[in-house]
Amino acid sequence: MLRLADWLMIQCPVMNVTGSQTLRLTWHNLAKHYGARPVWQHLEGELSHGEVLVVSGPNGAGKSTLLRLLCGLETADAGSIIYEWRGQRWTPTQMRPFIGVVAPDIAVYRELTALENVHFFATARGQSVSSEQLHTQLAQVGLLERAHDQVAAFSSGMVLRLKYAVALIQQPTVLLLDEPTAMFDAAGRTLVEHIITAQRQRGITVIATNDARELAWGDLLLKAGSA
């Protein structure tokens, strides 16, 4: 019933696996339905280390759904998603500890302060972070002055900055961004651009957006909803 080994694999990310550090993501024959309505079918594609994929398409075309599939928050009705990394094949669920996600429907705790949020999500991943690391991370997204304020008092742009801090604190190999700049001013947009550039060193980025300026950030473009 319970395969302990599998279970422990998910519970405790294996930090000392050797093998190629370069990452390859492939999805094959992917299909997803909501009720009887197919979102898309026979979706194919792949993404290699350092690349940035931009997914665009009209509302309801399944941009966010693809991102949710990539991190295992939802399961596909057919097809497979495989990460090849460190000489192993990983499912999205197994890959979770190495994925950072920023999305409008994924919230942080309003009752906690910015610092407590970042600290909690790092610890919950099983990471031990120093207070210095936490502060550096908050400084990167421009929230250092507000580190000890409760999120409830934040503007929506600041909440989005905090989500970036939470996603980046564990130096994710895979970065998934849904509407990455929806609440941002020009400074925020520059910040995201920097983050994406830095991510090219660490692994891959998938962005879901319809903003014309952001389409240029990608090496590859997937137009959803046209099929």
């Binding site: 998910i10 991190c71 994925i99 429907d105 994924i106 942080v108 999500f121 919950a124 099983g126």
Partner: peptide, 14 residues
Amino acid sequence: MRTAALLRLTTPPL
């Protein structure tokens, strides 16, 4: 509060 998704992504279920 829609924090469950991030908790699912970061924390082992058990």
